[in-house]
Simulated scan of single mutants.
Amino acid sequence: MNTVFERFALAGKVALVTGAAQGLGAETAHTLAMAGAKVMVSDLQLEQAQATAERIRAAGGEALAMRHDVTDEAQWQQVVAATVEAFGGLDVLVNNAGIEKMALFTEASVEDFRLMHEINVTGVFLGIKHAARVMRPGAAAGKGGSIINLSSVAGLVGMPALGGYCSSKGAVRLMSKAAAVEFARLGYGVRVNSIHPAIIKTDMGVNVVRGFVAIGLAPDEASADAYAESLHPLGYGQPQDVSSAVLFLASEASRWSTGSEIVIDGGACAC
């Protein structure tokens, strides 16, 4: 039987992480690489993605970077094919790329609503589709794998000024479950799970706090920050709290987990 450390190791695995130029994506790419995976860092911001890959290489990991618009199906095909060609396979996909735009329902624009769904939902759909195509038996990678979709606690509970974001992340939650059941029934050997973080102090998390002020839900940034932190009994989370959950789902330690939702929220949803 493998030791506990071997069950979490990713030596010999290949991972693709979208939206990995900064924030949770960059931390996740680094974590997977330090666990032994070869990592393709993809992002619309190529220079920042290359910087993430360079930091991984400087730390002793193996990584490459590609420009990637997750709403473009042709680019998904190119990035997946390039990952398989460069590293010899694809075992883990982390659908991390996403955006968040705050607005009250009465003030929200259709354009912003559609853009969130195009990136947060269509982007995840395309990732699931093209990763599974190469992971399933007889395909270019053909060893099965793990697809990890970043949803949010906003995909589990309603939040003010985040209606469009909530609906997009709720869609990611149920799409993950549907793919998990389908791939299991078809014998693909591809597991699909979702992760649901609460507010993490990345740039996106800071923007949420500022958004509470801009929309009139808090009088100033200090009050908004105190309110947001109070929603989490354990306080704010850190990027590594989320990347640790990704590592679990990427590894053999989670071999019997599919269609699951892992909530990383400092107790927010328990209140």
Rank of each mutant, 00 (worst) to 15 (best):
W76Y: 14
W76P: 14
Q77L: 11
Q78M: 13
Q78H: 12
V79H: 01
A82N: 03
T83S: 04
V84W: 04
E85R: 06
F87L: 05
F87G: 01
G88K: 07
G89T: 07
G89H: 09
G89C: 12
L90Q: 00
D91K: 12
V94P: 14
N95G: 09
N95S: 15
N95V: 10
N95K: 02
G98W: 01
G98T: 02
I99N: 05
K101F: 13
M102K: 03
M102V: 02
M102R: 13
L104D: 08
F105T: 05
T106E: 14
E107W: 06
E107T: 13
V110L: 02
E111G: 00
D112V: 14
D112S: 09
R114E: 14
L115W: 00
L115P: 11
L115I: 08
L115E: 08
L115G: 03
M116N: 04
N120R: 03
T122R: 14
G123L: 09
V124D: 02
V124M: 06
V124T: 15
F125R: 14
L126F: 10
L126M: 03
L126I: 03
G127H: 07
G127L: 10
G127E: 08
H130E: 07
A131K: 12
R133K: 15
V134F: 08
V134E: 03
M135P: 05
M135A: 08
P137D: 04
G138S: 10
A139K: 11
A139R: 10
A139L: 13
A140V: 08
A141R: 10
G142E: 07
K143D: 07
K143M: 04
K143G: 10
G144L: 10
G144Q: 09
G145N: 08
S146R: 05
S146N: 14
S146T: 06
S146I: 01
I148L: 04
N149Q: 03
S151W: 06
V153R: 00
G155N: 09
L156W: 02
V157E: 15
G158Q: 08
G158M: 05
G158A: 13
M159H: 14
P160E: 02
A161D: 00
L162I: 05
L162N: 12
L162S: 09
G163I: 08
Y165P: 15
C166E: 11
C166Q: 11
S167Q: 05
S167L: 04
G170L: 02
G170Y: 07
A171M: 06
V172K: 05
V172D: 06
R173L: 12
